[in-house]
Design a protein around this nucleic acid. Structure first.
Lengths: 361, 361
DNA sequence: TTGTAAGCGTTATCAC
DNA sequence: GTGATAACGCTTACAA
């Protein structure tokens, strides 16, 4: 039955294929000139009805609109951009085009941007300084009306200067002093605080922290939150329960291994992100300690809920960040939009990994 | 210590900020005209050295190059596009900007495209016909030199016609008869075959198939593979072991629930994709049957390996697909590239879920 | 209200 | 080799 369906469709496609041989320059899109000529008006008038608001007689306007339809006329965004010096395009540089973190950010940003009649252009900065610079240059030559940046490697000065030179910037996950109005970032300290506090409330008084590298400001802020929670519970901070390594599974594995090797006493682990958590779980599992260790990750990527036991995590409002970034960029590009928040609030998602164990087993 | 570092940086940024008040039109990028004037040659000559190959005297060429540097001149991609009618841009429409499946495709496509000096522009089609059409229109107005499409809803005729009208198309995950040269897709039948065969080899003679909707050609092809494997092992096909529903967790949950409710006899399950597998596992787990059921998913998304027991899956070569698509699009855009394959081969990734049970427990 | 014409920053076709 | 000059498709004063 589906075979039948398929064939019907395919025959149609085939027919079209044969009927109309491929002429390279079938691409003869109608131009504003064609419309003007056929409608018996000047290019200027056509341009006016195109841009809506001008004063054009109803009769001319109708005539032009009709002609546009007949010709299937679509204005060339390119020519418009050249003439107006605005491309209705927003650029975005992420440090990983794939991956569970940037996907949702891009998605939600793209939505608000496209709904405003703008276009989002995304490019990969790979988290490396030269690649980031190159990516940005790529975009500014297009050009773009605003730029959403997620760059960790590029020096602050360059970012600020880019903005001064006329390319409005929205900076994600990074805060530059004196440039805060252009930044959107998570309250990382609060995230670290929430996670740690909850584990302490559950009675765990020896909470390890497997962080990402402390060269990354986020890690330090999360550490501050961790410390604050300890303080509140009157538990002394122990340097020997804190580790730092890469923000990925291998980093998690190494840190957890160290923790175990050193025979440190602990019953709970706070991880710098969910990938670290996954690596750590792996090691815990090998030692039969997965079920008996309380754990909280960070970011709450999609698969955290699929793990077994499901992973508790500090939720990073990625969609929200994308949305805000989109609005902000649009505002900078001269498009009216609502006011934006610069600091996003995390919240703790409690799942099985939090309840897995009693503190003093 | 990091605080110190931060402050140093920030002060610099701040200094820059104050030194150079924001003038809206700081954006006075040098144009080809400026270069020509300062170098004492004509625009034509500058254009020639810009495009490399022409016959320009060494002395003039040097002079121009130097001047370009001094002025920090960057050609406007926009003006170039308008003049040449090629934008050095490749468009891509995906049906989900986030998600584990399209991420890697975009990523690898972007790499080959950018390495060729082209730009990738990605847009979301949301898998809905009108959105897809709109997305494509958005791109063709830019315009783009070629288009990589992942559209399931858009009618075949429209796609073929678009191509005829001068926008070269690369079509992913879909095959249109008479249009195969523009398509890149997985050998789904082979995927279904590999998964089923392996389970049969392990002694499971009652393998259920929780498929995605059979309105989707992929599902049917995978079903064919499933049947072929059964045939080879001389096991009769049983319609009552096959279900179809949405390609997501809920679909998986529903199908698995049905399977259990109907008291069908089975020891292994082949799932239409990994999300279906996740949903099904959920239900199996509730019934204490997770460990005792042999299972294979499809796509091998990143988190399959993180599940517990880890999920076996038919690997979909997403990076390869993105790469090929990029090369193919570049070739169509007039950029020389290597030959491409149109049919991609899956392979079976064996993990714990395959070994979980003995057939006749 | 409408048209003319001068841009926007390139490339490309001519002559010289 | 090199330089005018006309496109490319649109916007936008400035006139009419």
């Amino acid at each position: 039955m589906f075979q039948l369906l398929n064939n019907t469709k395919n025959n149609q496609a085939l027919a079209t294929l044969e009927a109309q041989p491929l002429t390279e320059d079938n691409k003869n899109m109608a131009t504003i000139k064609d419309v003007a000529k056929l409608a018996g008006v000047s290019k200027a008038t056509v341009s006016r009805v195109l841009n809506g608001n001008e004063r054009v007689s109803q009769i001319a306007r109708d005539k032009v609109k009709q002609t546009m339809k007949e010709l299937g006329y679509k204005p060339s965004a390119l020519a418009q951009a050249l003439a107006t010096n605005r491309s209705r395009t927003i650029g975005m540089v992420v440090s990983d085009l794939s991956g569970p973190f940037f996907g949702p950010i891009m998605k939600s940003a793209e939505k608000v941007i496209r709904d405003a009649g703008f276009q989002l252009v995304v490019t990969n900065g790979h988290g490396q300084e030269d690649r980031e610079r190159e990516a940005i240059e790529f975009m500014t030559n297009r050009p773009v009306d605003a730029l959403i940046l997620t760059v960790f490697a590029l020096p602050e000065e360059e970012i600020v200067e880019l903005h001064r030179n006329g390319t409005p910037i929205v900076l994600l996950n990074r805060r530059i002093q004196g440039f805060e109005d252009n930044c959107i970032y998570l309250d990382n300290k609060q995230g670290g605080y929430l996670a740690t506090k909850r584990m302490l409330e559950l009675g765990h008084d020896r909470v390890a922290f497997l962080a990402g590298h402390f060269t990354h400001p986020d890690s330090l802020e999360r550490l501050e939150g961790y410390q604050q929670a300890l303080d509140e519970f009157g538990i002394p901070f122990r340097q020997d329960l804190v580790f730092d390594d890469d923000y990925n599974e291998d980093g998690g594995r190494r840190m957890c291994q160290k923790l175990l090797n050193l025979k440190r006493d602990f019953s709970a682990i706070f991880c710098g992100n969910d990938l670290i958590a996954i690596g750590a779980r792996d090691v815990l599992n090998q030692h039969g300690k997965l079920q008996s260790t309380c754990m909280v990750g960070f970011d709450d990527v999609t698969f955290a809920q699929y793990l077994n036991p499901s992973l508790s995590s500090v939720f990073f409002p990625v969609e929200q960040m994308g949305e805000r970034a989109g609005h902000m960029a649009l505002a900078m590009a001269g498009h009216k939009t609502a006011a934006v928040t610069h600091v996003l609030q995390p919240r703790l998602i409690e799942r099985e990994s939090l309840m897995a164990a009693q503190p003093n087993d």
